[in-house]
């Protein structure tokens, strides 16, 4: 390759670093939304690079559904300690207790949708004016439409039919009081890019991304981890499988895949051979054709 030419991963890294610095410069009070998943872990690494040798100049915020994989929480706490960063935990349970959000009913209740209430509340409470999300355009068709700097009105809503122009590397963070922006530094990354980056940067990830034995229930074409948060329905059986997670989110809607991948190179091979998108294991997206767009309009991640 040409001496003055960057590989695709380096281009993506440089783009994301630029975006993060732009947010730190244009906004009063940014926050990084941290789920403990691989995309937010990569975001944290990029933030370290963007502001090094200074510390990351904004807090991390975890919207906690209460339905967590223990391993993720442990990982989160260790990372925060290592970074010396501030961690804010906004609890969905608290939103429910305060009567702001109502728990879903039925056999497959999920707190995925009501996280939005907690998220918007926390943004308002802490007066955050920009929130970094790890969303990628290759994940989902509504996400494929979103700008790097994505405007939210005073109710936290996204208007996909009226997005701002965003030319070259000029990013417009102008807003009215009470409005905020969601910013997606990983917009142009694919699932493969994220894994390749984790590999070349040797970034630690929660070990549930690797193969392990777990009690699971087969539902809607994927395996859900057996936990106190799901009800095993009639005709379903709990079985032990060697599985791993392609994405990590709320336990009730994050499906696992059967896999023997126990190192990052194996995961990369699996991703290259995958015939389904990674969100294919997410039951939250399968609720309707425009499930993601509808949630995003309301203020979801």
């Amino acid at each position: 390759m040409h001496k003055y030419h960057l590989s695709h991963l380096k281009q993506l890294e440089n783009e994301a670093v630029f975006i993060m610095r732009e947010v730190a410069s244009q906004f009063e009070k940014p926050v990084l939304l941290f789920s403990g998943g691989k995309d937010s872990i990569v975001m944290v690494r990029l933030a370290q690079k963007a502001f090094w040798p200074a510390k990351i100049p904004f807090p991390l915020m975890h919207i906690d559904t209460g339905h967590n994989f223990e391993e993720t929480i442990e990982f989160r706490d260790n990372l925060v300690e290592e970074l010396g960063a501030e961690l804010i935990v906004a609890s969905v349970q608290q939103s429910i207790d305060e009567g702001k959000a109502v728990e879903e009913k039925g056999p497959n209740p999920s707190r995925n949708k009501i996280q939005t209430v907690t998220l918007l509340d926390a943004i308002e409470k802490h007066k955050f004016d920009a929130a970094f999300g790890g969303g990628r355009r290759d994940e989902e068709k509504a996400r494929a439409k979103e700008r790097f700097f994505s405007h939210r009105d005073e109710f936290g809503q996204w208007d996909p039919k009226n997005q701002r122009p965003e030319l070259w590397n000029l990013f417009n963070g102008k807003k009215h009081i009470g409005e905020h922006f969601r910013v997606f530094p990983l917009s142009n990354w694919t699932e493969m890019d994220v894994w390749q980056y984790i590999a070349i940067e040797h970034i630690p990830i929660p070990h549930i991304y690797y193969t392990h034995e777990r009690e699971v229930v087969r539902r809607d074409g994927s395996y859900l981890a057996n936990s106190p948060f799901i009800t095993v329905m009639e005709g379903e059986k709990v079985e032990k499988k060697m599985i791993r997670f392609r994405t990590i989110g709320d336990m009730t809607c994050t499906g696992a895949v059967e896999s023997s991948a126990n190192k990052i190179e194996d995961i990369i091979l699996e991703v290259a051979a995958a015939r389904e998108t990674e969100r294919g294991t997410r039951t939250d997206d399968k609720r309707s054709e425009s499930a993601m767009e509808d949630r995003k309009k309301e203020g979801y991640f």
């Binding site: 494929a144 996909p160 054709e289 425009s290 767009e293």
Partner: peptide, 8 residues
């Protein structure tokens, strides 16, 4: 590629 409801 037409990912928005209004587009579809």
């Amino acid at each position: 590629t037409d990912g928005l409801r209004a587009e579809r």
